[in-house]
């Protein structure tokens, strides 16, 4: 127990030291983590928000099936997503064998982005759908009555559901910044190329470098906290406006 507490404090000291020194290896890992998860979140938002809005507001054939698939996706184990992407992108896989410049090879940040995007977009879509369904249905008719096109009506409903949409994006971010199984499988944890915070934590723990692993964990927590604070501030601004 006492040893664990010591490890925690030593990890905290190590984290402060690494950050204070601007350790180049650490900066590289943090930047790659943010780049991969940020790009995956951007793509997930671009896919998930329109999909969630369409499922929440539209009525079309196959809607229930898509919702069932999306709910399944929300609970998908990341390591299974990683395996799925691994098989898709491997040289003998259906996408990897195309040898297309549009398909990133395995063990690259591009492959990690795809895996994280598949993990995050059902979360973004699912929470967005719930948010737009929570908006008073009468609002749509009143907005249309004021002369809104279908597109303007959808944007207005999304704007009304903005707090829920923000929560959807935060949930997507939370689902990928802390994810390790998929990025380990498709990224390979290659130093200087695909090593991100979570895979580095696994590696350092396995090697017995608990202080360093704890330091990386605390930095990861700090990043997640910082980004959530920014999101909450944006939410606050939307409340105020």
């Amino acid at each position: 127990m006492e040893k664990s507490i010591n490890t925690f404090w030593q990890g905290l000291v190590e984290a402060i030291r690494l950050i204070g020194n601007g350790d180049s290896g650490l900066v590289e890992i943090v930047v790659l983590s943010l780049r991969v998860s940020g790009l995956a979140l951007l793509l997930s938002t671009l896919i998930g928000v329109p999909l969630g809005a369409a499922l929440g507001l539209g009525r079309f054939i196959g809607r229930k099936l898509v919702i069932a698939l999306m709910y399944t996706g929300m609970g998908f184990p990341p390591v299974v997503v990683g395996l799925f992407v691994y098989l898709l992108l491997s040289r003998s896989g259906p996408l990897g064998s195309l040898d297309s410049p549009l398909v990133p090879p395995l063990f690259t940040p591009g492959a990690m982005v795809i895996a994280q995007c598949i993990i995050a977009f059902p979360l973004v879509a699912g929470f967005t759908m719930a948010a737009v369904m929570g908006v008073d249905p009468q609002l749509r008719q009143q907005v249309q009555s004021l002369g809104a096109t279908a597109w303007q009506t959808t944007l207005t409903v999304l704007a009304e559901a903005r707090i829920g949409v923000m929560v959807a994006i935060i949930a997507g971010f939370g689902g990928i910044i802390s994810e390790v199984g998929a990025v380990m499988l498709v990224g390979g944890n290659i130093e200087g190329r695909t090593r991100v915070l979570t895979t580095a934590i696994v590696l350092e723990t396995r090697q017995g470098n608990f202080e360093l692993a704890m330091a990386l964990g605390l930095i990861l927590l700090g990043i997640a906290f910082f980004i959530n604070v920014i999101m909450l501030r944006l939410q606050g601004k939307t409340f105020d406006s």
Binding site: L139, Q141, V143, G147, T156, E160
Partner: peptide, 24 residues
């Protein structure tokens, strides 16, 4: 345009609500 029995106003200021139709 229609004014409904139960007005649903947007989560914005009074001024922004009234300006809404012009923006559309």
């Amino acid at each position: 345009t229609t004014v409904a029995q139960r007005p649903i106003l947007l989560n914005r200021s009074v001024w922004a609500n009234i300006r809404f139709g012009l923006g559309l």
